[in-house]
Design a protein around this nucleic acid. Structure first.
Lengths: 220, 220
DNA sequence: ACAGCCGCGTTGCATTTGCAACGCGGCTGT
DNA sequence: ACAGCCGCGTTGCAAATGCAACGCGGCTGT
């Protein structure tokens, strides 16, 4: 299996081979392939597993009251989706769709929830799982912080600041302009417009999805 | 202790007295009182416990790049704050402040993270804690869904739909207009304006924080 | 090589919305 | 009772932004 991918995931990083085999068994790991465009779940039905993307990419959508659909998350190799829903056993309000051919490792949480006693390895795995949940909360917090801003400029500054804090002044983002606009909760063309302004004012520089922020970036 | 409050919290609901005492010990529960306006943590330092509000209310703020501060959450009796941060041991990017006189039950997660073996009760508590984290994710998802909308009207419709789905056509919300505007990521007066329009069009009715939505509520 | 598609920047325009200011009614403490 | 405060609705206005449309350049498959 793609070990380099699994190492990136909080759940499995740093495990010995034996531990990893035990972990797979504990989570009932099952690997499945999907073609581009395939749906990975059914809406209104609980997710029986959560997913770890091994290759390709999936999107998590949600339908709107008036039929529009909205991207809730884009999930890339090494990342997971559906842990919270799966753990709570709630009916899925979202649908999950492969945007490229994709391989998914499906993992069940039954034994986390029902086991009367856990081995040390299993306890470690539970801790990893809880860590994933907590990390997810913090990531969502970052996004809420961005979405709460009322101007596109403020959203961008916040967005870039978050990246700069982690990766320094130059970084690339995992979005094309459309996904970026969705993530920021705004319109693609309006986003383009504001990016151009920021570049013209010398506050940032960019080419495609590679960005560089300059010193003294502040709210306009 | 305020048992009716604790029953509302996922962590402690339905425990026997003996179990509850054990749970308090496991989490090193410590009760503290704060006066209105007091700060409950220091920024840039890990939270050593997360908090369960027994009485009063606290707000979680975050400072902006340009000095503005922004409400991230309002926490009422029976609700918790800081679980994710505490569990991950990250430096707090937020500050927590009592908005009324408040009593907090502080709970540590050390033993969750470090114990080599867990008793059945402790395992149950771990499951409850993970459930809280997962629930938090779903709640944040709801808010992200709202904040992603580009018009105030769309935000309101989404907001009301979420409430209606849970409580039916009439409900009251835990916000005053200012907090509501913050939660929706918009301006108080603009919110008032749109609420008036919706009432005038017969789509909703309201008085203070009690709302009633009418059939056929749809995106305008 | 060429057609078709996709991602992205640009622009004009109507609309929305943030913002600031004001007024009103209810509540509180003295 | 009265002053002061607070929450909320209203409104005028300038600026921001969603939206639709268009053009361009690069990529892909035939």
């Amino acid at each position: 299996m793609e070990n380099e991918i699994l190492k990136k995931c909080t759940l499995f990083s740093g495990l010995t081979m034996a531990e990893f085999v035990g972990a797979l068994a504990f989570f009932n790991g099952i690997r499945k392939s999907y073609q581009k465009g395939a749906f990975l779940n059914r809406i209104g039905v609980p997710l029986e597993s959560f997913g770890l993307v091994l290759s390709g990419a999936v999107h998590v959508y949600m339908d709107d009251i008036d039929g529009h659909h909205m991207i809730m998350a884009t999930v890339e190799p090494g990342e997971t989706f559906g842990e919270s829903l799966c753990y709570l056993g709630k009916d899925a309000p979202v649908y999950i769709c492969a945007v490229t051919d994709a391989e998914i490792l499906w993992l069940r949480t039954d034994q986390l929830k029902s086991a009367a006693v856990l081995s040390p390895l299993e306890l470690t795995l539970f801790n990893r799982f809880a860590t994933m949940l907590a990390q997810r909360s913090l990531a969502m917090n970052d996004r809420i912080q961005i979405l709460s801003k009322t101007s596109i400029r403020a959203k961008l500054i916040t967005f870039f600041s978050q990246y700069a804090q982690r990766f320094g002044n130059a970084f690339q983002i995992p979005f094309d302009r459309n996904s970026m606009a969705t993530y920021l909760g705004t319109d693609r063309s309006a986003l383009s417009r504001e990016l151009s302004k920021l570049k013209q004012e010398g506050i940032i520089d960019y080419k495609k999805n590679r960005f560089r922020v300059h010193k003294g970036m502040e709210m306009g």
